[in-house]
């Protein structure tokens, strides 16, 4: 790799306070603009891996660098600025159900404002227009003033993506974004992520349970097992048998 990676893990370990091993000696480099899919069983450490990147989880030892900068020492404003450039999408969408779609989308922009302005809702006209554009990109502009809980699951997930776009992220982390969606809406959400990856050159990291989906969208697939990185191949070298093994060997062990 000629270009420096946007994210790099070096000997990263994570042990939870109850002694459970979350991540074990992870070494990983992710180049800018890659569509990376992480596969593995529930509890293999996929969510943990994702959340260490935006410091929603702290690591026990090792080093994570983003844009060449180690992130472990960030605090307060510096940590918020780090998180600003990393969008995150969740299995449960995590919208504020009682708020309008507009407010939910604008909440993705709050880190560009001082706290008192966010409390008064003093968003600039440009940002309000940006909210509309973000919704247009996920084909939901007509829902601007709808309450979030009146939307279907797939629509809510796309609103969540629009919220993330307001951050103007360089990286998007998606933690099983389609696990609670039907096949059709799954395609809409995954296509949206793919488009952002290709059009905006955003680095996308997605946790998935589905092997076919992983093969369809990924540039590269990594596999986790009990917190360890057991598989790492570009999509051209991935075979069905490899992936089945990630699931089967552990299922037998378990």
């Amino acid at each position: 790799m000629v270009e420096a990676p946007i994210i790099s893990f070096k000997n990263v370990n994570k042990i939870y306070s109850n002694g459970t091993v979350g991540l074990k000696d992870i070494n990983l480099e992710i180049p800018q603009g890659q569509f990376l899919v992480v596969v593995g069983l529930s509890g293999a450490g996929k969510s943990t891996l994702l959340r260490t990147i935006n410091r929603m989880h702290e690591i026990t030892s090792g080093e994570i660098k983003i844009d060449g900068e180690p992130i472990h020492a960030y605090k307060g404003q510096a940590l918020r600025l780090l998180r600003r450039k990393i969008g995150m999408i969740f299995q449960g969408f995590n919208l504020v159900n009682r708020s309008s779609v507009e407010r939910n989308v604008l909440s993705g922009r709050v880190s560009y404002y001082p706290t008192w302005k966010t409390l008064c809702g003093l968003f600039t006209q440009a940002d309000r227009e940006m909210a509309v554009r973000s919704l247009q990109r996920v084909n939901l502009a007509d829902k601007l003033y709808t309450r979030a809980d009146e939307l279907s699951g797939g629509q809510q997930q796309r609103v969540a993506i629009a919220r993330t776009l307001m951050q103007e992220p360089k990286i998007i982390l998606a933690d099983e974004p389609v696990a609670s969606l039907d096949p059709l809406t799954t395609k809409a959400v995954m296509d949206t992520l793919q488009r952002l990856n290709r059009e905006d050159n955003i680095t996308v990291i997605v946790n998935l349970h589905s092997v076919p989906l992983a093969r369809q969208y990924a540039d590269r697939i990594i596999g986790l097992q009990a917190g360890q990185l057991v598989y790492d191949r570009p999509i051209s070298e991935v075979t069905e048998a490899d992936l089945n093994e990630i699931y089967v060997t552990e299922a037998v062990q378990a």
Binding site: M56, T118, L119
Partner: peptide, 21 residues
């Protein structure tokens, strides 16, 4: 707690998180 997690990941301050989520 989902919306709080989302607002935290956005980079919002504590007070903003309470206000929005």
């Amino acid at each position: 707690m989902g919306p709080l997690e989302a607002l935290t990941s956005v980079g919002a301050s504590k007070v903003t998180i309470i206000w929005y989520a």
